[in-house]
Design a binder for these strands. Sequence first.
DNA 1: GGGTGTGAAGCCGTTCACAGCA
DNA 2: TGCTGTGAACGGCTTCACACCC
Lengths: 214, 214
Amino acid sequence: MKPVPDKVIARLSQYRRLLTDHMDQDQTHIYSHELAALAGVSSAQVRRDFMITGYSGSPNRGYEIDELVKCIADVLDDPDGHKLALVGVGNLGRAILDYFSGRRPHLTIVAAFDVNPDKIGRHIHGVPCYHMDEIDRVVRAQGITSAVVSVPADQAQKTADTLVAAGVRGILTFTPAPMRVPQNVYIEEVDITTSLEKVAYYASTNTAVKREVK
Amino acid sequence: MKPVPDKVIARLSQYRRLLTDHMDQDQTHIYSHELAALAGVSSAQVRRDFMITGYSGSPNRGYEIDELVKCIADVLDDPDGHKLALVGVGNLGRAILDYFSGRRPHLTIVAAFDVNPDKIGRHIHGVPCYHMDEIDRVVRAQGITSAVVSVPADQAQKTADTLVAAGVRGILTFTPAPMRVPQNVYIEEVDITTSLEKVAYYASTNTAVKREVK
DNA sequence: GGGTGTGAAGCCGTTCACAGCA
DNA sequence: TGCTGTGAACGGCTTCACACCC
């Protein structure tokens, strides 16, 4: 299958959440311009994105919501689901565990890692916490494919190397430090400091800017 | 001054952090290709970005780091600094307070807001916590210009409205719900669920994708 | 030679605009 | 008539490639 652009993936994820979480239960169909208004994009954008899923709407009723959600799932979700690891159980790590537990059925955080002895061996928000030395063993044993990283900057590279060596193919990192990984590993970097500096910049300059989704 | 593109602002912020936080103390100059390698972009990109700051390097020594950082600050930082508010002191909110306290001198979180009586009136990571009913009063009194929002989805719009009415011009939100704001207010939306779904998608498809910065 | 600064070209994502259809 | 699907135009960001300079 031809590669789907990054931004389309992000919007599909957003569309799905809008359709499943913020929708009238008895609404069965939706027009591109309606969904576009909810998502803050143009209706042409919405139609363009759905071309990729292969799902066609009907000119007089729009898109059938259930079908649409199914088609989005066909694109986004691996049929086997994904097991995730969380590395670094600090404030942010705990927030993510809490925030994310049970939110997306096909994505499950099955293991957490830290170096703090107070955390190791316990369950945090239902997830068992191991020492970081056990990353390789646990990742292999559980078949973990992706990881969320929120460790101090000076451990970022070492953590990435360990994860990649154990077979992880995708990393979401909150650590604001460069991570060097092989080409076939996907890195998503959420940089809160940069995000805040952007907000501050535009708050000063008072420039109108279109909204976008990360 | 002509408006600076979103992406350039983000990269300038990243360059600065690389230059100030991850640099040998005794290194005084840097070439565009060196910084490019650190940031994971092309050297042409780096030079292009610096055109905007107005700073010129020297062909045989590259860029003088101190000068460069100063020029970036001239673009990014408001001379008066920014006071920030945090709305929603849950796990994520506390993580941000902790993570961010004292990290960027010109950006200071001066007030937190929640509805939980256990938090109101106390200091959390050194920041006073008020009831959300007081947003308008405190924001005006303190001259707060920007806000970080991590409230439940169903309160996102109300929170945004209150903040905007009180004069806030920039919002960084972690709440995965559409926020409608006037054109002149800048919204940066960090959507952790979408980020994770992207990671999972590319972990499945195994597609090599270039790294980028949020 | 190996850098920087920059016009020009290239690329990619978005929007336009319209044919086709119910 | 109003919507979908889509080729074509558009625009902005990135890269190329080269003049210039130390």
